[in-house]
Each structure stands twice: as structure tokens, then as C-alpha cells.
Design a binder for these strands. Structure first.
Length: 490
RNA sequence: CGGGACGUAGCGCAGUCCGGUAGCGCACCUGAAUGGGGUUCAGGGGGUCGCGGGUUCAAAUCCCGCCGUCCCGACCA
């Protein structure tokens, strides 16, 4: 940084910009262990709001929370062939405990399918015991080679839902339902548009029948897989003897799903909405929605403006127009050693959606001067009816942030028949999402990845597909079996 | 694990080529003024120069070894 007050710009170096925003907005910091991170209060506050919103939705769809242990017997990991092949290389393993070598090494969970379906098997005798609809909030460890704050760390926080059903169709319905819960959350709370769809065979979860995903476009035009939902079929049920007696008295294997989102979403939030002034948090996820900055020139003004600002804060926080349990989240910045301008920059860096400046002139007019974080637009708001006006403006900001992100994604998406040469040129340059035909052959997918670094993010769900389906495979020219969204990804 | 850069105060860096009292900016503490977009002045505190060894009267600086971090590549939420 030439000027240590200014951030590296997104245009100059997107990676450096991202790191600086995360560190300087105090979302997270590097820990002494390479590849792991400390989530600081500003970042954890966003995660807590994410958790609350999602947890309510999980409950509303009939799920209950439970907790399964961190350590998994090595033998469990080996029971499902695809699963162990996919995860074993990135697992941390405990071999000593109590000062002795362990008889059986214990894997630190990279995900909990094995232990959870082992337990489900113990709890299930009859079809009357199904479905089981469980979620857990937990940490997991995956030993990654290359790490980035929030996006890929050795240890991360997530939720993993695990369910067991009597039929394939019921499991399929559950997997799709939860994918749509994620989509609702990402659009409605994160103001982050996503494309939902099916993963190709090579990108699906190790051990799944089918994997669905939500993919978002970051400001560098790369894709971020923000959430996944898997129809596990009977793969784990068979590996863990998860059987039930059906209505006709026959034994049958259960059908499972699992689905998860992680603290990676915080990184997605930064890269979707941040700008060259720092973080920009959508109001519904902002731990602080409004910061009040009083302005004074002398002791007399200081006492007058402090009193007025306290009164404004009190009016805002005591307002129940949004519901008694959803009060406006307001912070009053009374620090005296800092000039107002310096405070503006600091709160903007931290991404507070709305700032109220309150000085003598505003007080005379019985108004506050409101500045939006997203557009940096300013307007005077009358004290009379301020809480309702503030709530309306926050909703407006939430809405506009989503609209801006959606417009950006569409502006950087390409549809229709594209030559492979044009595709390569695009991936070498600005990047973006390309909707193109795919023959369904893994060889084509692998070749494109090798040549361009781009991968199939999803085969999009119906509503995201092009009006006219592409007819031929972008790479080999054979007839297209499915439209695919191609992009470079995190 | 390959390629590149770097490691000196909380942060950002200079000093290393050419060995000789460890510096600058920001931040921090004290005081005064200032205060509607990054305030000014004065005073002050803070360092095993990543770690270990070697050369030398003398090492941040030269030599050897190690460790760590970031960026770019092969794997992944």
C-alpha cells in the first residue's frame, strides 16, 4: 500500500484487496498455525446472524439440532469406498492419546456422514422411525495445501444437515428443498444472487448419488460454490447397515441426504459487495445496521449533541415497528479523539450499511444526515418518524444491493452458441459465466479444465437455463446433452 | 509439493550491495488547541532486526543451515 490509509483497489489486485478488507475490517486474523484463522468479533457477528437466519429456516422445515463428536474411528472412514477416496488425503488423524499410541487412529471429521449414519442405524428399526431430520453446527478440518481467509482454511465452521428417508423420491425432495432454503437465504439475507443446479459426476460429493449446488459470481468474475446439497442414495445406508423394516415387513436400506454451508459465505459476502472503501454488509446480516456520528466544535456543543445522539439512539432501539424481537441495531460513536471524517472512513471500511451524522445544523432542523454505505448517497431524514424511515431505508439498501449484484452477474454472463476459441479468450481475459452446451462426456470436461482452468459449475436448474437450449457441445461439437455453466472457480 | 517475493516496534517500510550507537511513517500514551470527509503542535513509551551456527575487534548487514508468511501453479466448501 502506497498510502496505508487506502486499500489496494480491486482493479489493481483483487486478492490483495480481499485480504486487506478481511484483516482491516477485523473480520479475521491469521493464527499461529499455518492455514488456520481466528474469526474476530466483527466476522463472527456476521456468522452469528447467518446462523440464526438459517437455523430458523431449518427448524421451519422440520429439522432438529444435535451434536456428533469430532473424532471418528479410522475404520468408519473406510466403509464407503468413494467417500474415503475423496477425503482421506485431506484428513488430519490423531494417533496418540493419554500419552500412548492409540489402537485405532481417530480421524478428525472432515464431514460427519460416517459417524452420523452409524448412529442413525442404531436408532432405526422400522419405517415408523423415519424420516430422521437432523442438523448440526460444528467445526471440521480438511488439510488444504493452499489456504485463504474464510474461503479455504484447515479448520472451518459450518452446518451439516443429515437426513434418512424411506424412499429415493423423498430423499430427492429433501435435497432439493434444502438447496432452495440456501438459495432463499443467499438471495434474501446475503443479497447474493446464486445459480442453482446439478454438479457433474466429477464435481459431486464423494459418496453421493447427486450433488446440487448454489454458485455465486464474485467481483473478479470467478465462481464461488456457496452451498451444496446431496442426495446420497443408499450408499452410506449400505455401508453402515442403516436398514428399516417397511410396511410389508421387508428389510430395506434407507435413503440419505446431507447439505451444508460454511463460514466461506463470509468470504462470499466480502467479494460480492465490498468496494474500494472496504466491506459493505447487507443490513439483514449486519451486526450493526446504523452508526450515529455526532459532530461538535466545543464543550457546549459536545454536551448538546451527545444528549441528542443518545436520544436518537434510544428512539431507534426502542422502536418495535419491525417486531419486538427485531430491533434496529444501532451504535453511537462518542469517541472524542477522532474527527468525524476519520470515523466515516472507519465505519465504511467495516461495512456498516447506514450512517447518521448529527451536528448542530441537523439538530436545528430536527433531522439527521443519512449516508448509505452501498451507494454512498446522502439525504436528510427528519427526526419525526425516524425509526420507520430508517427501517425503510435499510430495506431499500438490502434490495438495491441484491439488484446491483444480480445486474453485475448478468452483465458478465454469456449465453448462446460460443466457439471454443471465443470461450478460451474470455477465460484468459475477463472471465465470467458461460452457458454452453455439453456432450456429457467427462473427457471433454477434463480437457476444458486442463486448457482453460474453467470447470462446469452446475448444470443449471430450469429457471436459469437459456431460452433456447444450446444444441452442440462447446468443446467437441457433438450434440449437447445438457446446458452447463462454465467458469473459473474458487 | 514446484516457481516468485518477503521476514527489522502493533501495522507499513528504509537501512543489507559497501560491517561501526537501530531509523522513518502510521498507530499508541500525555498535554493543549482543533472538530460537517482521514486535524495540528509539543512531549513520550515501545525492538532478543524470524531461529540456529560461523567469520570478525565489531554482524540487521557477510557465509552456512533451518523455520515461517504471502503471491502464482497441481487438489478442495
Amino acid at each position: 500500500m502506497a498510502d496505508d490509509k487506502k486499500l489496494t483497489t480491486r482493479a489493481a489486485d483483487f486478492s490483495a484487496w480481499y485480504n486487506e478488507v478481511v484483516l482491516r475490517a477485523e473480520l479475521a486474523d491469521y493464527s499461529p498455525v499455518k492455514g488456520s484463522m481466528v474469526i474476530r468479533p466483527n466476522g463472527y457477528g456476521i456468522w452469528e446472524r447467518m446462523q440464526r437466519a438459517l437455523d430458523d429456516m431449518f427448524k421451519a422445515t422440520g429439522h432438529q439440532n444435535a451434536y456428533f463428536p469430532l473424532l471418528i474411528p479410522e475404520s468408519f472412514m473406510h466403509k464407503e469406498a468413494q467417500h474415503v477416496e475423496g477425503f482421506a488425503p485431506e484428513c488430519a488423524v490423531v494417533t496418540r492419546g493419554g500419552g500412548k499410541e492409540l489402537e485405532e487412529p481417530l480421524f478428525i471429521r472432515p464431514t460427519s456422514e460416517t459417524i452420523i449414519y452409524h448412529m442413525f442405524a442404531k436408532w432405526t428399526q422400522s419405517y415408523r422411525d423415519l424420516p430422521i431430520l437432523i442438523n448440526q453446527w460444528a467445526n471440521v478440518v480438511r488439510w488444504e495445501m493452499r489456504t485463504r481467509l474464510f474461503l479455504r482454511t484447515l479448520e472451518f465452521l459450518w452446518q451439516e444437515g443429515h437426513t434418512a428417508h424411506t424412499t429415493h423420491d423423498e430423499a430427492e425432495e429433501e435435497a432439493v428443498r434444502m438447496l432452495n432454503v440456501y438459495r432463499t437465504f443467499m438471495e434474501g439475507w446475503m443479497a447474493m444472487p446464486v445459480i442453482t443446479g446439478l454438479k457433474s459426476e466429477s464435481e459431486k460429493f464423494a459418496g453421493a448419488l447427486r450433488t446440487y449446488a448454489c454458485e455465486a459470481m464474485m467481483q473478479d468474475n470467478k465462481a464461488l460454490q456457496a452451498g451444496t446439497s446431496h442426495n446420497l442414495g443408499q450408499n452410506f445406508a449400505k455401508a453402515f447397515e442403516l436398514q428399516f423394516q417397511d410396511e410389508s415387513g421387508q428389510m430395506a436400506y434407507a435413503w440419505n441426504t446431507s447439505w451444508g454451508v460454511s463460514t466461506r459465505m463470509v468470504g462470499g459476502l466480502v467479494m460480492t459487495h465490498g468496494d474500494d472503501n472496504g466491506l459493505c454488509t447487507p443490513p439483514r446480516l449486519a451486526p450493526i445496521e446504523i452508526v450515529i456520528v455526532p459532530i461538535w466544535k466545543n464543550d457546549d456543543e459536545k454536551s448538546r449533541l451527545t444528549a441528542a445522539a443518545l436520544k436518537v439512539k434510544d428512539e431507534l432501539t426502542s422502536w418495535t415497528g419491525r417486531g419486538a424481537t427485531d430491533r434496529l441495531r444501532v451504535h453511537l460513536d462518542l469517541r472524542d479523539a477522532m474527527k468525524p471524517g476519520a470515523k466515516y472512513y472507519e465505519w465504511e471500511l467495516r461495512g456498516i450499511p447506514l450512517r447518521f451524522e448529527l451536528g448542530p445544523k441537523d439538530l436545528d432542523k430536527q433531522a439527521v444526515f443519512a449516508a448509505r454505505r452501498d451507494t454512498r448517497g446522502k439525504q436528510s431524514l427528519a427526526m419525526d418518524g425516524l425509526p420507520a424511515a430508517a427501517a425503510a431505508l435499510l430495506e431499500r439498501i438490502q434490495h438495491d444491493m441484491f439488484a446491483a449484484a444480480l445486474a453485475r452477474r448478468e452483465a458478465n454472463s454469456v449465453r448462446g452458441n460460443i466457439t471454443y476459441a471465443a470461450f478460451r479468450e474470455l477465460m484468459d481475459g475477463p472471465g465470467g459465466f458461460v452457458y454452453a452446451g455439453w456432450c456429457g462426456d467427462h473427457a471433454c470436461e477434463a480437457k476444458v479444465k486442463e486448457e482453460t482452468k474453467a470447470t462446469i459449475r452446475v448444470m443449471p436448474d430450469a429457471e436459469f437455463r437459456s431460452a433456447e437450449a444450446p444444441t452442440s457441445c462447446m468443446h467437441c461439437g457433438r450434440s449437447s446433452k445438457a446446458e452447463a455453466v462454465w467458469a473459473k472457480a474458487y
